[in-house]
Design a protein around this nucleic acid. Structure first.
Lengths: 250, 250
DNA sequence: CGGTCAATTGAATAGAGTCAAGCGTAGTGG
DNA sequence: CCACTACGCTTGACTCTATTCAATTGACCG
């Protein structure tokens, strides 16, 4: 037990779990520690494992320590839509706090390490620690803004533009958390996952990827995504580079 | 000036502006008053007016007192996607707090009354009043969950299912704020607006509406939407009735 | 060396978009 | 009271993006 608590704390203080919280401004070590004390021991998940099912009645959050996860909504016909991708440092399941039963299932897209954060103490912590609450509020708003952008693309842009936008945004997020080159990073998503994200069939995803390869825009090879021409991808997607607010009020 | 402040306060204490805040639990009159004191004088907007443009550099929020508004993202080709609809009591523009420039324009879908809430004092208020912060946090999560549902429908469901879902959700929201019959309520949206919401052309929206009329599912007439068969709409959309959390921690 | 999962390609089909024209109705002004 | 206008609704015909179904190839693993 001691062991896992130490491991957990180490992850929260040194690992990428911290970085995400600091996106909108410094967070006191005290705030980070109290969040760490809420978290349960790390659990391992394999690709495809369900981290939290949409049939789980009791609400709980997860802190993603390692690997990629996604929130998936399953339709009646069995197809699924991934509504967001989460990278290490993200807190999973916050939207579910607002509803009595989850609409989405949280799945591991990769080998994942995550720990549980129980909902009640989490909310109590927010009310205890205004600055941490403000930071998490802003992080939630950012994810909502991101969902709005995807919604707009889904409704108005053809599939290849949506894929271009996905690549651009993944590039931005990945470059924030690893010190590897921004233009080449691990890509655990299969073509079917990408299809579930951008709302197309696997077959069509494949054709777009082929097209991107031919146009020297981007290539996926050996579970790595290489961005060959970010500017042209931005132009194709019709989006701008993401600029986070630098709030004066924090 | 006295006059408008009184009008503003009245709206915040009696009107539907209060109701939305109380969705997840009681909010102290004190909390409501301090939010009221932040708000500027009410301003009138006509249908089509821009409440906050995506070119406005300075971030500010709005409190919607009357009428319907929407957040719209405009694409390069001039088409637009409405990412959310807001009803009286909603706070507009929160996601924009997280980015340095807005991605969306907030437009009036109807005759609208709204007042400005400056961003900095708003965030400071959140850090001052934990309970108000928690409530607004949950409201944001709910809107994000709602966006996720729409995203899933947009990616995986045909246009008629998306329209069915829109009608069902609008019905739920409208019945919360007026005491008129749940199955018949004002509908300021034009067919082009509905198309912008569900991501189809006006022409196709028209055909779906005709289909709904023939199947006795729902009818729009004289700026009113009448829901004829909510259960079949739910089934068609493949969604369940919305159940808000009843948090034990508030 | 089969077994499983992922990527790839072709052919037929359907959902939705675009273009273009016609219709209804409310409001305005003579 | 009628004519004119503006806006929104309705419908048809054609096109195209993306889907579905099906089959094949390739890669990795025990």
């Amino acid at each position: 037990m001691e062991n896992s608590i130490e491991a957990r704390d180490a992850a929260l203080y040194e690992g990428p779990a911290t970085a995400r919280l600091e996106n909108f401004g410094a967070v006191s070590p005290d705030d980070k520690r109290s969040l760490a004390e809420l978290a349960g021991p790390p659990t391992e998940f394999k690709r495809g494992d369900i981290i939290r099912s949409d049939r789980d009645a009791s609400t709980c959050l997860h802190l993603l320590l390692d690997g990629w996860a996604a929130s998936a909504i399953t339709m009646e016909d069995g197809s699924r839509q991934l509504t967001s991708v989460s990278l290490p440092g993200d807190i999973l399941g916050m939207p579910t706090l607002a509803v009595s039963y989850p609409l989405d299932t949280i799945v591991a897209l990769d080998s994942v390490r995550a720990c549980v954060i129980p909902a009640k103490p989490f909310m109590e912590l927010l009310m205890d620690r205004p600055r941490l609450a403000a930071v998490l509020f802003l992080i939630s708003q950012e994810e909502r803004m991101f969902a709005m952008e995807r919604l707009a693309l889904m409704g108005r842009a053809p599939a290849r533009d949506r894929l271009a936008a996905l690549f651009v945004r993944l590039r931005e997020r990945c470059s924030q958390l690893s010190n590897v080159s921004a233009d080449r990073f691990p890509m655990p998503l299969r073509q079917s996952d990408i299809g579930d994200l951008i709302g197309t069939s696997t077959v069509h995803t494949n054709r777009i990827l082929k097209n991107f390869r031919e146009l020297n825009l981007a290539v996926i090879k050996k579970r790595e995504l290489e961005i060959l021409d970010n500017d042209r991808l931005l132009a194709r997607a019709g989006v701008s580079a993401w600029h986070r607010a630098e709030p004066s009020w924090l």
